[in-house]
Nucleic acid binder design. Structure first.
Lengths: 335, 335
DNA sequence: AACGTTGCCTACAACGTTGTAGAAACGATG
DNA sequence: CATCGTTTCTACAACGTTGTAGGCAACGTT
């Protein structure tokens, strides 16, 4: 039922290689020969066998995207843009979930890597630079700040500045007791560390004291963690007049907890998040947030990978920065 | 840098095939030979070339999941479960976005299919049974009701009954003017048609009139469409006391529109959705909804695919039904 | 007329793997 | 000791593709 070059060749009365040449757009084929071959291809509904092609050429046309979890809206939205950007290069995207677990991330970084894909776009949570050292060959682009000091190309946004700006926005609105939700002690919290740094920068610049009781940790950054952290802050008696959540799902959880506590947003407590996920544009109230340009992040990642594939694989790692902007919505409005 | 069976064989002093036998767990290999080979494999950090293996065996160990959009929470959550379920079979999942466009869906159904993947789990929006007829070979499992009359295995939930039950819940709470958001005229709206049927069933069973002005169409089922449809209902002067949205994102948009119109949920208008996405568990108010068992759907789909791969490919198409339950939350509570 | 150039095409080998067939070594059996 | 079956291993071919080398016309140039 499935046909090979050989079948097409026999039907068109040419050699196998000539059919291959037609399929690959090689120039020196007489128009009538080309037409005959194309006709045979159409009649047999021939499709190249990608595995065989890859075996021969050393390229699969498939890249992988590895993210912690697909049902975290930020990663889902990012995945969408990566798939779209990759399509422009004729690539298919294979998506892997690591669960943010180091073991699984190592498997992805080394295992999947082999022979099945041309390159990897990787958003690690737990991986260390050592895990990546000594990986043989497959080009990789890292997303985010987890792994530093360039074992591979990387796309980042300026987390510190972005966090400082959104905190400064709260200060400028007159808030003075600004809580932060999402801090992490472990090494894994690279984004948390940078966003916390931006937060303290902004406080310092405004002459406000850093109050440790206002900073709530959150091991994961899901809605439930945000709700729990907010409840914790409220019951512990510290009374913030604003909250900077280190991502949007935390913020949506915090909104929920504030609602349950009978506090109004933004009148009693202002809330900001980070990531600009779709939910935050329709939540009640809508959520002010830092909006990284996810489409650009995806484009840059795919571009870096393309350059690495076609160009010098031993060139020093490049780091590209994607833009962001502040999206100010109801959760920080003073009505 | 990258090694082949041949390299391992030379190092271990055996034939290539013996190494292959060790790698594949063939029984008749002397323990000391096996040990020598395994040592060589470890030393060289050998990994099989999957393309070559596939070329030889006709299997890739990769299945594809094709969904309309990844950043629709329902599909993202589903994708997560599919990836997990597939991992249990040792499969990697390649994810494709079709955008719900028929042309792209046809490409996925016929093109991707060829040689790169062993099977396909497909959630089509626009595809017709004719598009699928005459596809050569690659086993496929369809999700949802879009394509009927079995050209392929299928996993569904009982949309009509589920819709009837959630509507009956609204009626039982005392609501009488129940709107529906998400109807679709085009052929593409198979789910819409079935959910609408459940809705009218429930009305009829309760002796309520079907009022066409209470049924709002929505071409796509995003938050923005739900908000627009709700606004449309409100400004057109029909005053529903409850709304059944055909999915959760529509419902979240409707919640937002009701909020902007100054109406309280559930006091003034009760709202229910369909899908049980994570957002609805933290929205304000939390959303009552039909919760399909997504994990089970994913498992059934992967299982059907596995059976099809190992078993009779010409056996008649099977249809499996996944369970669901009603999740009753704040948006329908009478406080 | 001899020669090089170009256009078009073919034959062959190779990519790395595994199935098949069968050889060699070994122990058990008559 | 001859025979047989089992275990262990090897040589070879094949999966479908493309790169390389080369052949044969047709053409223009010396």
């Amino acid at each position: 039922m499935r046909h090979r070059l050989k079948d097409v060749a026999e039907r068109a009365g040419v050699s196998v290689k000539t059919v291959s040449n037609v399929v690959n757009g090689y120039v020196h084929v007489r128009p009538d020969t080309r037409a005959r071959v194309e006709e045979a291809i159409a009649e047999l509904n021939y499709r190249p066998n990608l595995s065989a092609r890859h075996l021969r050429k050393g390229r699969t046309g498939v890249i992988a995207l590895a993210v912690p979890e697909l049902d975290i809206p930020y990663f889902a939205e990012l995945a969408r843009y990566v798939v779209t950007a990759a399509a422009a290069y004729g690539w298919t995207v294979l998506i892997d979930q690591t669960g943010g677990r180091r073991e699984q991330e190592r498997v992805v970084a080394s295992g999947i890597t082999d022979h099945l894909i041309d390159g990897l776009i990787f958003s690690p949570l737990a991986l260390t630079a050592e895990d990546l050292a000594g990986l043989d060959g497959t080009p990789m682009v890292l997303l985010g700040e987890r792994v530093e000091h360039g074992p591979a190309d990387r796309v980042v946004i300026d987390n510190v500045t972005a966090a400082r700006e959104i905190t400064a926005h709260l200060i400028q609105l007159g808030h003075r007791r600004i809580a932060a939700i999402g801090s992490q002690r472990t090494d894994e919290g690279a984004s948390a560390r940078l966003r916390l740094a931006g937060y303290t920068d902004a406080l310092r610049a405004a002459g406000l004291d850093y109050d440790e009781t206002l900073v709530a940790p959150a091991s994961a950054w899901h809605r439930a963690d945000g709700a729990a952290a907010m409840q914790g802050l409220l019951t512990s008696g510290v009374r913030p007049d604003a909250v900077f959540c280190f991502n949007d799902t935390l913020a949506l959880g915090a909104l929920r907890a504030l609602h349950e506590a009978g506090l109004r947003v933004p009148e009693d407590v202002a809330v900001v998040g980070f990531d600009d996920i779709e939910d935050g544009r329709f939540s009640i109230p809508t959520l002010s947030t830092v909006a990284p340009d996810k489409e650009r992040i995806a484009q840059l990642a795919v571009e870096l990978l393309a350059n690495r594939l076609d160009g010098d694989r031993t060139a020093p790692a490049k780091e590209m920065s994607a833009p962001y902007r502040l999206e100010l919505r109801e959760s920080t409005q003073t009505p």
